[in-house]
Amino acid sequence: MAVSASDPWLLVSLLAALALAGLLAWALAKGFRTTAFGVLAFAFSYCLVSNVIVLIGTNMAERLFFVPSWALSITVASLLVPVAGAGSRLPKPRAWKTIGASLLAVLVAALAARTWVRIGDWRSNRYLMDSVLKCYPRNVKALIVKADAEARAGYQGLARQFYDEALGVRPDSSYALAGLGTYLADRGEDGAAERLLLACARSSEPIPGAVLSLALMYLKGQRYEEALWAADRTLQARPGFSDAATARVVRGEVFLARGEVAAAQKEYRLALEEDPENSAAHYNLGRCLEALDDWEGALKEYKATERLAPGDEDALYARAQAEARLGRLEQALQTTERLKALHPDFIPGRKLWTDLTRPKER
Score class of each variant (00 low, 15 high):
Trp9Lys: 14
Leu15Glu: 04
Ala16Asp: 08
Leu24Asp: 01
Ala29Ser: 13
Ala29Trp: 12
Phe32Cys: 01
Arg33Leu: 14
Ala43Ser: 11
Asn51Tyr: 12
Asn59Gly: 11
Glu62Tyr: 15
Phe66Arg: 08
Trp70Leu: 15
Trp70Gln: 11
Leu72Pro: 01
Ile74Asp: 01
Ser78Asp: 07
Ala84Met: 11
Ala84Asp: 06
Ala86Gly: 13
Arg89Gly: 05
Leu90Phe: 14
Pro91Glu: 08
Leu104Met: 13
Ala105Thr: 05
Ala105Lys: 09
Leu107Val: 11
Val108Thr: 07
Val108Lys: 11
Val117Ile: 15
Ser124Ala: 10
Asp130Arg: 12
Ser131Met: 02
Ser131Ile: 02
Ser131Asp: 07
Val132Tyr: 11
Val132Phe: 11
Pro137His: 06
Lys141Ala: 08
Ala151Trp: 06
Ala151Cys: 06
Ala153Met: 12
Tyr155Met: 10
Gln156Pro: 02
Gly157Trp: 05
Glu165Val: 05
Val169Ile: 07
Tyr175Gly: 05
Ala176Trp: 04
Gly179Glu: 11
Ala185Pro: 00
Ala193Glu: 02
Ala193Met: 04
Ser204Met: 10
Ser204Leu: 13
Glu205Ser: 15
Val211Met: 06
Leu216Phe: 05
Tyr218Cys: 00
Leu219Phe: 08
Lys220Asn: 10
Gly221His: 13
Glu226Arg: 09
Ala231Thr: 03
Thr234Arg: 04
Leu235Asn: 01
Ala237Asp: 00
Arg238Ser: 14
Asp243Leu: 05
Asp243Pro: 06
Ala245Val: 03
Val254Arg: 02
Ala262Gln: 13
Ala264Ile: 02
Ala264Asp: 04
Arg269Trp: 02
Leu272Gly: 03
Asp275Asn: 13
Asn278Arg: 06
Ala281Val: 06
Tyr283Trp: 01
Arg287Leu: 14
Ala291Leu: 15
Asp294Ser: 03
Gly297Asn: 10
Lys303Thr: 06
Ala304Pro: 00
Glu306Phe: 07
Gly311Pro: 00
Asp312His: 12
Asp314Gly: 06
Thr336Arg: 11
Arg338Asn: 05
Lys340Tyr: 03
Ala341Lys: 09
Leu342Cys: 03
His343Lys: 04
Pro348Glu: 00
Gly349Glu: 00
Thr357Gly: 13
Pro359Trp: 06
Lys360Pro: 03
